[in-house]
Design a protein around this nucleic acid. Sequence first.
RNA 1: GCGGGCGUGAUGGAAUGGUAGACAUACCAGACUUAAAAUCUGUUGGGCCCUGUGCCCGUGUGGGUUCGAGUCCCACCGCCCGCACCA
Length: 847
Amino acid sequence: MSRYTAADIEPKWQEAWDKAGIFTATRDESKPKYYVLEMFPYPSGRIHMGHVRNYTMGDVISRYKSSCGFSVLHPMGWDAFGMPAENAAMAQGGHPGTWTYDNIKTMKGQMKPLGLSIDWSREFATCDPEYYGQQQSMFIDFMEKGLVYRKNATVNWDPVDMTVLANEQVIDGCGWRSGAPVERRELTQWFFKISDYSGELLDALDGLDNWPEKVRTMQANWIGRSQGLQFSFERTDGGGIEVYTTRPDTLMGASFVGISPDHPISKALEAENPDVAAKLAEMRKGGSTEEAIETAEKLGYDTGIRVRHPLNPEWELPVWIANFILMDYGTGAIFACPAHDQRDLDFCRKYDLPVVDTFLSLDDPKPVENDAFVPPKTEKVKWVNHFAGPDEATGEEAIDATVKFAEEAGWGTGVEKFRLRDWGLSRQRYWGCPIPVVHCPDCGVVPEKKENLPVKLPEDVTFDVPGNPLDRHPTWRDCACPSCGKPAKRETDTMDTFVDSSWYFARFTSPNAETPTDMDDASYWMNVDQYIGGIEHAILHLLYSRFFARAMNICGHLPDKAIEPFNALFTQGMVTHEIYVTRDENDRPVYHLPEDIEWTENGARLGACGTEVEVIPSAKMSKSKKNVVDPAQIISSFGADTARWFVLSDSPPERDVEWTASGAEAAAKHLARVHATAVKIAAMDDAEGDDIDLLRAMHKAIHDVTMGIESFGFNAAIAKLYAFQNTISKSKAGGKAQKQAMRTMAQLMSPMTPHLSEEVWSMLGGVGLIAQAPWPQADDAMMVEDTVTLPIQINGKRRAEISVPKDMDKAEVEKRALAEDAVVRALDGKSPKKVIVVPGRIVNVVV
RNA sequence: GCGGGCGUGAUGGAAUGGUAGACAUACCAGACUUAAAAUCUGUUGGGCCCUGUGCCCGUGUGGGUUCGAGUCCCACCGCCCGCACCA
C-alpha cells in the first residue's frame, strides 16, 4: 500500500486488536495496575467532539501506560437516567428506556471507529436494573448506617402544571412549558448526610496532590468552613432569636435582625397574619437557585418584633424578614451591619434603616454612604465603635477578640460552621432509580427487603400529562409492607442522577458482581489512577463521589484506601467552533451549520444561495447554535487518527480547543506525510551509516514526548513529533538508522494515532503489534550536547551569544563573555558592575 | 450577588524566573505543472536607520520585587465558567 488511506488501515488494525484481545483488563498480580477513566457520557443521541477529545486523552494515557508494562483497566459505560429521556417521551411519544437504549447503540457505533483501547466487556448503563438494583441495596445499607434521612426542602413549583421543575426548566423565573411564574414550595425529601463529612472532605483535599489546584480551591470554597459567633438576641416579648455571624466584631454596627422567609418565626407569623402571608408569597416568587435568590431585588417586611442588643439592653433592634437570607445556612437569622456588607447596606438604604460605621480605613477615614467598606480581614483599620480589642487592628484580630469577649461574658459561643448542605436526592420523576422504601400506615417508612431488589420501574407509563407517572400508575405503588405485610405504598420519588454517577467507577472493577462491588477486585483495581473529565464537574460530581466512597467504605463495599477514589484528576477544556448567523425578516438570528458555509474573498457566505453570513467568535459547540462538527462525519472523511491527532494538537488539553477545517486538514496532511516517509524508508536497503544527529534527535524526541504525555502536555508532545518528522524526512543517514528512527516515531505516535502507527510499524519490520511493544527509552547520554550556546545579556537584554564547552567553569565563561564585541562596546572601557553566569543557561552583564 | 479561571503575532498556541513567539495555520515568494489542485522549499511581531555584524518598542492596563518577569506580588480593565433539581 503506497498511499495513506485511513478507511483501509483503521478497520484492519481494530480487528487485529480485537483478535488479540489486548484491551480486556485482567488482574495480573505480577504487574502494577493502572486504572484510567474518562467521565462516562450521557446518551444524548450522538457523540460530539467533546467526547472525542475526552476519550482520546484517556486513550493516550491508557495505551501509554500499557506500553510501560502496566495492567490497564480502561472501561466505558453510560450515565443513562435523566430528564432528556422523559422530555423526548413527552415530545415524540415512546418510552424513555427505548430512547435511551437506542441512543446508546448509536453512540457506541460512533465510538467504535475511534479505535479506543476500551474493555467493552465491562460496559453497563446506569438504567440497567442490574446496576440500579445494587444502588438500591446500597441505599438500604446507608439507611442502616444513618447516612440517609428525610426532611422538608424547597423545590421550584409550577402552579399551572402542578409539578416540580428542575432549575433548568425555570426560564426567567417562569415554568418552561406553562410560562407561569415559578414559586418556591416545600416538600418532604430524602437527604444524604454529606454535611457530617464537611470537615473531613475539606481536610482531605490537602492530600489530593494530583488534582488541579483550582478544583481543590473550588471544593474548599464550596464546603466553606467558617469560624464565627453564635448567640441569641433576646426578644422584648420573650424568647430569643439565635443568630450566627462571621463578623461579630461589627456588632456595634447592627441596625436590624434579619430572618429568612422560611424561618419558624416567619412561618408562625404567616399562619396568623394575612399581610405577612402576602408578603412572603411575593418573596417566594422566582427560582430556588442561590443565584436567583442573591440577585433578586431586596425585599423586606418589618415583623414588629423587637430584640435587645446583647451589649446594651436599652438598645432595641427591629426584626425584619428579608428575602436574601437563606434558611439553609447558619441559623437562618442574622444581624445586619450595613456599613460593612453591601447587601445589608442596599437593604437599609431601601427601607431607611440606620447605618453605623464600626471601623474606618486608615488611609481614607470617611463614613460609609452607598458603598459598604469591606476591607480584607488582614487589613489594619481604625475602630470607632468597638467593645473588644485595640483601636487599630485587623478584622481577624478584632473577630478573635470579640469571640473571646463574648465567651468570657457568657452570651455567645465561637463555633465552626460549613456552607455545605446535605445532599437532597429525591426527584419527582420517572426515569431514575426508584428509592427502595415503602410507606406503611402502621410501620411508617420501611426499607424494601433486599431479596425483592431491584425495585424495577414499571414499563407501562405515559407522559401525556405533567408530573411523575409513578404517582398516577394504577398498581405499581401498591405493595405489601416489608415489615408487617399489610397493604402499603411505594415511595414514588426516584434518585438524583448524581447518585448513579457517584459509584460507577467502583462498579467497573467488577461489573457483574452479585453485590455492589467485589472486595477482591475493588482492592486490586481501585483507586482510579487517572480520572479525566470536564471542569463543569469540579464541584458536585466529584464531591458526591468522594462522599460516596466514604459511605461505601463504612458499609463494606470499598477498601480503606479507596475513600479518596481518584488519585489524579485532569479537567479538559471544551471543543469550540465559530458560529454562523443570518437574520430572518423579523431580524431574529438564524444559525447555520459549518458545512453549509463557503468562504470567499468577501467573507463567509451560504453555499446554497450566497447570502452573506455573520461570523461570531468561537463558543462551545451546541446544537442550538448549530456550530457543531459531527465526529462520525470527520472520521468517515479523514479517519479516526486525524480526528484524534487534531483534538490533541494546538491547544493545551485543559483549555478550550477551536475546531477549524484548516486544522483538521493540516492533521490529515501531516499523517499522510508520515505515511509517505515510512513508505520511502521501507524501500531503502539496510545500509549502515549512523547519523549522530538523527540518533540525538530520536532520543530527544523520546524524552520530550514521554514527558509531554506524562504531564498532559499533548499539544507540546505533538509539536515535538512534528519537529522529529521534519528531521527524519531530511536525514541523510543510512537505511538501517532511518528505519530505527521511523519505528521509534511510530511508537511515539502510537498513543495518539494507533492505527497509522501499527501500519508504519509493520511496514518497517516491527515485531508483533505496536500496541504491545514496550515503550522506547531515551538514552540520557545521547541527549547531552558537548557544547552549548549561551546568550549574553547586557542589563537583561540579549546582545550576543557565545559557544562554549558545556562544563566550562564560570570564571572562564565570564572571561569569554567580557571579550565579546558587543560587551566591549557596551562597557566602553569601564568595568562591569556585576556579572551573573548561570551555567548552561545564560550570562548577564550589568553595566 | 458569591466562587473559580483566562488574557502572548493575522490565527491556535510554545516558553523549570534565564535568547519571547517552538510547532502549526494563514499570507507571501519560489520549484514542479500547459494550467489548477496536490506536493516540496523559503520568508513573515511592529517600528527606525536602511549598508550592515545596528538600534528602539513589544506577552490586556498601571505599579512593584529581581542582575533578569509572559512567568512572582498588588491594583484595575475585559472575557469565560459554576452556583446545589442540566448532565
